[in-house]
Design a protein around this nucleic acid. Structure first.
Lengths: 129, 129
DNA sequence: CGGTATCCTCGAAGATACTG
DNA sequence: CAGTATCTTCGAGGATACCG
């Protein structure tokens, strides 16, 4: 029992949301916008609603499956809204930010701006084939 | 040749940094700070340099291997600096933000703040066993 | 048009043991 | 103290084909 005083007694507090543990509030944010495509999708949605194919054209390197999955996750997380405007094909589906999603806009702008600053130094801009 | 006018002629420009393509400036930023642990590490380094074991204690769920790899990536990306202060064991190694890394601080603060706002609604704070 | 279904690859991250 | 070495797991994301 004496050894108790040598143990690490600093209580480490973490966040818990539905059985998931987050060691830092930044982890919570990254769970919403992390991954390869979410910030890109959200960045293109921030100026208004977009159709599925419009998003695809903005992201020439994403596969349909992945775009679809990411959109569904963002929808499940309450960040974006999916609205179907037709009953029969050809379908018209529009995606837009929810109010909760709009709360991310300043952050998205800042992420984009830091990337642009880095690009100024290190990147070249090329046109996709 | 007539069909050329039906093709998607909007030139899609992307960023290129050392053979990697980025469809959006947000992707560049996320390549630096994305993943499960980088924002956490950077957030804990933003107030000054930390030793390896100090970082471990802040992140009770990270494995040594992963922490080590993430630190090395951040170092290779020029975001943090690694300084060795002893020649023989026990070693003293300190990590700190570079000037480039410090340019991320406002962004890190904003990421943390958005996460805190969400936590206020949805998270509980628990003490790690 | 706006997706799913299926199968597959690959890298991030973890578990555990060991070391200068 | 501050890692590295090995092995393994797991899930994000990709390729391709098909569907309402």
């Amino acid at each position: 029992m004496d050894s108790i005083k040598f143990m690490d007694t600093r209580a480490k507090e973490v966040y818990k949301i539905q059985d998931k543990f987050y060691p830092c509030s930044t982890s919570i944010t990254m769970d919403f916008i992390g991954g390869k495509w979410k910030t890109v999708i959200l960045f293109y949605l921030k100026d208004g609603c977009k159709r599925y194919n419009e998003l695809r054209k903005e992201m020439p390197m994403v596969t349909e499956r992945t775009l679809s999955l990411q959109l569904k996750q963002l929808e499940d997380d309450g960040v974006i809204r999916r609205e179907v405007h037709t009953l029969k094909p050809p379908l018209k589906v529009e995606y837009s930010l929810t109010d909760f999603g709009k709360s991310l806009i300043p952050l998205l702008e800042m992420i984009a701006q830091w990337g642009r600053d880095v690009a100024k130094d290190k990147a070249e801009v090329v046109t996709m084939p």
